[in-house]
Design a protein around this nucleic acid. Structure first.
Length: 272
DNA sequence: ACGAGCGCCTGTCGGC
DNA sequence: TGCCGACAGGCGCTCG
């Protein structure tokens, strides 16, 4: 599921609690089950088990699409990739088919990492900073100004859509929010990044922020066979709307492939 | 620097 | 009904 708004939604749910899902802050880990060894990126399984037992969850953070589970000694980092999800369950619940990893707590609850496609990864690290070394700025961070953003775009001879998906350029945007932001900014996805004016760059940054904020406020997007409680899918302007009319001008939304990703845009509102 | 292609996985959907 | 390809919210790698 995971783009920035979805990861942020999960972070808030785990930290603050939600109906049927108690806050995990303060829970003590008594055991971990690695059901699919490939999910663990670092360290090796033996060290992982040894280190994580007895630690307590103190907070939940986020960097781009990475979820940070702050423990008393280490940080447990989770990347959901394409199909990952995190669920709070009781030890009485059956272990679902695609559960890859379980954290068992002292009080009989557990955190389950469900990941159909097995692309997701977890790391247990004393210092997660090196993992984030190549990441670009947070789009919602106040330190990223329109002037900074323009300066980053200015010397990139690259199509804007793949650039928005490049996590080293700006971190946290995925395929849905890239398409939605470009539509809001009225930019064709193949526009050369270096050709944007300072005004267009400012509009694009503002559009990115608006769609990400709207996504967070809607508790993320829920699509395909997994329902996660979010409703941003009901507000898509272009994503997965090929052949349907643009809400702004009525023109049929088109779908093309850019950098191997399905790309949705309005050929009228987003002229090359 | 950049894009294309592929691999990693499982599942759904539409066409024939 | 069954098979087969296309496609899916991501990203790391190699190769031009």
């Amino acid at each position: 599921m995971p783009e920035l708004p979805e990861v942020e939604t999960i972070r808030r749910k785990l930290r603050d609690g939600a109906p049927e899902s108690p806050s995990l802050v303060g829970k003590r880990i008594v055991r971990a089950s690695l059901l699919w060894a490939g999910s663990l990126a670092e360290p090796d399984p033996d060290e992982f088990q040894y280190r994580i037992i007895g630690q307590t969850i103190t907070d939940f953070g986020r960097r781009a699409k990475f979820l940070l589970i702050q423990l008393s000694e280490d940080t447990l980092v989770v990347h959901l990739r394409m199909s990952g999800d995190l669920l709070v369950e009781s030890e009485d619940d059956p272990v679902a088919t695609h559960h890859r990893f379980l954290l068992h707590f002292e009080d009989g609850t557990r955190l389950a990492f469900n990941d159909t496609r097995k692309f997701g990864r977890i790391w247990l690290l004393a210092d997660p900073a090196p993992l984030f070394k190549k990441l670009g700025p947070e789009p919602l961070g106040e330190s990223l100004t329109p002037e900074d953003f323009y300066a980053r775009l200015e010397d990139r001879r690259r199509q804007i859509k793949p650039l928005l998906l490049d996590q080293s350029f700006i971190a946290g945007i995925g395929n849905i929010y890239a398409d939605e932001a470009l539509h809001r900014a009225r930019l064709h996805p193949l526009t050369l990044a270096s050709s944007l004016t300072p005004e267009q760059a400012a509009t694009l940054l503002e559009s990115i922020r608006q769609v990400l904020q709207a996504g967070i406020e809607a508790n993320g997007a829920s699509i395909d066979w997994v329902y996660r409680g979010g409703e941003f899918q009901n507000h898509f302007q272009v994503y997965q709307r090929a052949g349907e009319p643009c809400y702004r001008c009525g023109t049929s939304i088109e779908r093309i492939v850019v950098g191997q990703r399905g790309t949705h845009f309005c050929p009228q509102c987003q002229r090359p």
